[in-house]
Design a protein around this nucleic acid. Structure first.
Length: 375
RNA sequence: GGGUAGGUGGUCGAGUGGUUAAUGGCACCAGACUGUAAAUCUGGCGACGAGAGUCUACGUUGGUUCGAAUCCAACCCUGCCCA
């Protein structure tokens, strides 16, 4: 019996959208789901209680690379695992460090070899090597419910040759990750790469499927490309992924992308966007983004979103939050973080209902119209 | 009253004869952010003008000079020290 299993409840008759449940050792996840990111064993500015009671988050992420550097996976293991260390008893998914191969590579802080990736720490310049085997070792020490294969997320744009070589290496790394995986109470997901080339996506998917992972992710999109290209790969790859396993789209978190992901049959998405935007002073709302610093909100004594049920919207006005953000007060970032995260979890609750009613496409169109997206 | 330091754009503060509408910081006004090197980054910020450009600016007045925020004189104001 695998640690991670997927139960399909309903498929939207008018799209490929799936309503389901992911079963994990720390409980069930209703899907499609949005997963807040808590890189350094904390969803920035949020307590676990707020994540449960206000945000209603079902699962959060942690990061292999960051926790390996500080405080160290051995320390977290000693603490009793990541769940206990950070006081979060619901499911946790850990990213493998693969995204840092991308993001630190952009900054020239990383070298890739067949063996793995050498990082120069952004903390103190020290050198660290992460291999598929060590990534799994770290993730097993952290004790996440869902581990991710160590992969390379290619920059956009990349050439066909580079993308192909990278994808093939990611596949070899996936095999090594699978071989290094020993803990039965943790699941391991394969990551489909191949950039913006459909034939490479097909090869990646086929090769990973042969390895029979308990779940699959699409990596390497939402890396700065135009929305059309994002949708092109998403809609091409999503529906081809195994039906009996969770489908995870990595790194997506704007409201429109989340709805599009669900329409493409995706079950899980994660993103730093809501929390980062919050700290930078921007809020989601049904009527579009709100840059709260803008002068027009100076005397706006209404909530961020009159339809929102979050703690922030029930108790605070735009004018007050604007004041807090302008004064660089921590509470401003906290209130916006609660709101942005709740906005997305509530959006996904709605998406699940619309799927059950075979109505997600219509909902998408209505949502776009109100939000101000042109599509 | 004597001595001394100083008065610069919203503010703090560089600049001490000519690429100076005047470095920076802050404030202010916008923009960006998508598996977190991110409570970060980018742009704007004298007035008028779409723009080329024009005008007005470094306490006040006057002077030296081809040219002054920068040099000189007087005056006004502020801080500190002494009486």
């Amino acid at each position: 019996m695998s640690a991670i299993t997927y139960e399909l409840l309903h498929v939207d008759k008018n799209s490929g959208a799936r309503r389901g449940v992911v079963h994990t050792p720390h409980g069930d996840i209703q899907t499609p789901v949005f997963m807040p990111v808590g890189t350094q064993a904390t969803v920035k500015a949020m307590t676990p209680e707020e994540l449960k009671e206000e945000v209603k988050a079902e699962i959060i992420l942690g990061n292999t690379y960051h926790l390996f550097l500080r405080p160290g996976h051995d320390l977290i293991k000693e603490a009793g695992g990541l769940h206990k260390f950070m006081n979060w008893d619901r499911p946790i998914l850990t990213d493998s460090g693969g995204f840092q191969v991308f993001s630190l590579g952009q900054a020239g802080l990383r070298k890739i070899t067949e063996e793995g990736a050498e990082f120069r720490s952004y903390l103190d310049g020290s050198k660290h090597y992460i291999t598929p085997e060590s990534s799994i070792e770290i993730q097993q020490a952290l004790g996440s419910d869902i581990m991710m294969c160590f992969d390379e997320c290619c920059p956009y744009p990349s050439t066909y040759e580079y993308t192909k070589a990278s994808m093939e290496r990611t596949t070899r790394w996936a095999e090594r990750c699978k071989n290094a995986w020993t803990k039965e109470n943790q699941g391991l997901f394969g990551i489909i790469q191949g950039g913006f080339f459909k034939d490479l996506r097909d090869i990646s998917l086929k090769d990973l499927e042969a390895m029979d992972f308990p779940g699959y992710a699409i990596g390497g999109i939402s890396v700065g490309e135009p929305k059309e290209e994002f949708l092109d790969i998403l809609n091409y790859t999503g529906p081809k992924m195994p039906e009996n396993k969770p489908r995870y789209l990595m790194g997506v978190g704007s409201p429109d992308y989340l709805i599009e992901a669900a329409l493409a049959g995706i079950d899980m998405c994660d993103c730093v966007l809501p929390t980062r935007l919050a700290r930078h002073g921007t809020a989601f709302s049904a009527n579009g983004k709100i840059v709260i610093k803008n002068k027009k909100y100076e005397r706006d004594f209404s909530p961020l979103d009159s339809e929102c049920d979050c703690y922030t919207c029930k108790n605070y006005t735009k004018a007050y939050i604007r004041h807090l953000i302008n004064m660089n007060e921590i509470l401003g970032m906290r209130l916006l973080s609660i709101h942005n995260l709740r906005f997305l979890t509530k959006l996904m609750e709605r998406v699940r209902i619309e799927i059950e009613h075979d109505n997600l496409k219509n909902f998408r169109d209505e949502f776009y119209k109100k939000y101000g997206y042109t599509k």
